[in-house]
Computed example of a mutant assay.
Amino acid sequence: MSKKYFAAAAFACLLMSCGSGKNSVAVVDFSGEWNIVEVNGEKVSAENTPFLGFDNAEHRLYGNAGCNRLMGTFNLDTLNAGKISFGQVGATRMMCPDMEVEQSVLEALNKVAGYEEVGEGVSLNDADGKSLILLQKREVKEVSINDLDGTWQIMTVNGTEIGKTEKTPQLTFDLAEKKVYGNASCNTINGGFSQEEGKSSSLQFTQMISTMMACPDMETERNILDALNKVRSFEVKENGTVSLLGEDGTELLTLKKLVETETEA
């Protein structure tokens, strides 16, 4: 009996040493959003801080690559700590003055095979253990419908910047009446908006109608109206602009706050 006891104790000791040795990897809770602070050992400097968001329930990846919004999937190996991979990572196609950071982020994500805790962050590594991306937990600002108060210029639709149009496309939110009005680059639009109970960032436009005037270029207007019908949530970026998002988190429209002198009737 004593031999069996010592054998069991030795085996337990072996298991403990395997789990507590210097090569062990701590399991990381990736839920929430993380700023990308380094790519391939280089500190990130971008107008819009790139970040990754992890939806554990849906295994969905979202975020910003430095210019465009990114989306995809991730697979976190729950049986082997330290293993993670990304799949079907794509991005919107808006052009920015500096695309270098974005290209580096997207290329690095395709090479990620694992992770490890590093100081106050998490390193996403390649198959050889080389650090590709350094993440730090992002403090997400609480948003409310009050953040949408006022008049906003519609800057992009489906990731494409809006060029010169008959009228500057705008949206004005009347929070007291829960109404929205403005124009979609040609015609005047009116409607309402609602939120899901308990979800401060939810947003859906209702009963949107527009006048029927014809303009030389109606494509932008059609794209804006189609995007408004698909909006399900919003987020406020660090630079003060607002993104209106679809059901899967895809950015449909971006808005820039206007001062009173910039608004159009």
Rank of each mutant, 00 (worst) to 15 (best):
M95Q: 15
N125F: 02
E42H: 04
A81M: 10
S104C: 09
T92C: 09
G87K: 03
M95K: 15
C67H: 09
K164L: 07
P97Q: 10
L70Y: 06
V39W: 04
M71A: 11
G53K: 01
D147K: 02
E47H: 13
K141F: 00
E116D: 10
K83Q: 13
T156W: 05
T160F: 14
T165W: 02
D98S: 06
K137Q: 14
E38W: 04
L109N: 04
Q153I: 11
K141T: 02
K167R: 13
N48C: 09
V37K: 08
G41Q: 05
I162C: 03
V143D: 02
N48W: 13
I133V: 07
P50N: 06
S104P: 06
T168C: 07
S131N: 11
Q88Y: 03
M94H: 13
G66R: 09
Q103G: 09
A81Y: 07
G87Q: 05
D147M: 03
G114D: 06
D149E: 13
N80M: 14
N56D: 14
A46V: 09
N40R: 08
R69G: 07
K43G: 07
S45M: 10
T168E: 13
L70N: 04
Y115A: 00
E142P: 03
L79E: 15
E166S: 05
M94R: 15
K111E: 14
K111D: 10
G119C: 13
E166R: 02
S144W: 12
T73D: 08
D55H: 09
N110C: 05
S85K: 11
D98F: 03
I154R: 00
H59V: 11
Q88L: 07
E58C: 10
A127L: 12
